[in-house]
Design a binder for these strands. Structure first.
Lengths: 148, 148
DNA sequence: CTTGGGAGTTAGAATGATTCAAAATCTCAC
DNA sequence: GTGAGATTTTGAATCATTCTAACTCCCAAG
């Protein structure tokens, strides 16, 4: 079910970790593997449960730690919607999120550079933004798949 | 400190409540008054503390209830940022939020219709969105005031 | 080797925002 | 004035997340 990391993905992980002074550990590999295996914006709990199939001793706290580390070195993004549990997303390209009212599922929506630019342009002078979060909430006709 | 509602604002409150089958109560008036008096995106706790100056017996649960009711009848918007406490905003015009990294303060950013439109246009066919949340996170040069 | 230190992991307790449940109060139509 | 239904209150419960302290692992120095 959960494939091992490809050589390429393992290198990606290692490079990002080492670059920010962190180590590659079996737990981090497991968590990262889980994230890449099913890109459906899982919650911490979901990651935890999936990862335990592969590494039964893994603890919840470690999953929190790993994910925090990944966010810190830019490997994954957090996705928050209202006050629901934080979800995690390994899609690094600039994108927005669409949350389906009916299913709760989160879809990635590609964000063209010109739209991003027009968004930035609405900031008054003096405001300098590093992060822009865009999230839609509504209905997606079933069958739509955009979970990159 | 906390002024009474203007006639106009009181009517606005009453109309919105009645339209969705709710009653005007002293607690709801107090909470609404607090929201209008200082449009700085307060948390529930902040609303609670401010409102108690005017109505000492008011309970926290009631503040939660009132705010939920207001959101339900479109009087105010919730503003969530990461997993911090929910904040409340009586600005009904379409706008984005800018969260100042340094102070934690939230500023409203006007959202021109054409930008809104270009945002909507990135949704693939089949996706239909009622709500769009846009939030910036970064630094605002101090002195910037955009808290309406 | 073997020892010691630092990073990482673990289990479980603690936190804190929010929600829930049940009793008390209010309000308004009759 | 009465009763039903809505609202408010208090305090307990929930639940995601964070914290704490003990433990493990690995590597580098002796």
């Amino acid at each position: 079910m959960i494939q091992n990391l490809t050589e390429h993905d393992r290198e990606h992980l290692q490079e990002a970790l080492v670059k920010s002074g962190q180590k590659v550990t079996p737990q981090r590999e497991a968590v990262f593997t889980v994230l890449l295996a099913q890109r459906d914006h899982p919650t911490v709990d979901e990651v935890f449960n999936r990862a335990r199939e592969v590494m039964p001793g893994l603890s919840l706290a470690t999953v929190y730690n790993c994910l925090e580390t990944f966010v810190g070195c830019g490997l994954v993004r957090q996705v928050n919607h209202e006050r629901e549990s934080t979800r995690y997303c390994p899609n690094l390209a600039p994108h927005a999120h669409f949350r389906d009212k009916a299913t709760g599922r989160v879809h990635d929506i590609e964000l063209p550079p010109e739209v991003l630019k027009s968004l930035r342009s609405i900031l008054p002078p003096g405001f300098d933004s590093e992060v822009i979060e865009i999230s839609f909430h509504g209905r997606a006709q079933s069958g739509e798949q955009t979970s990159n």
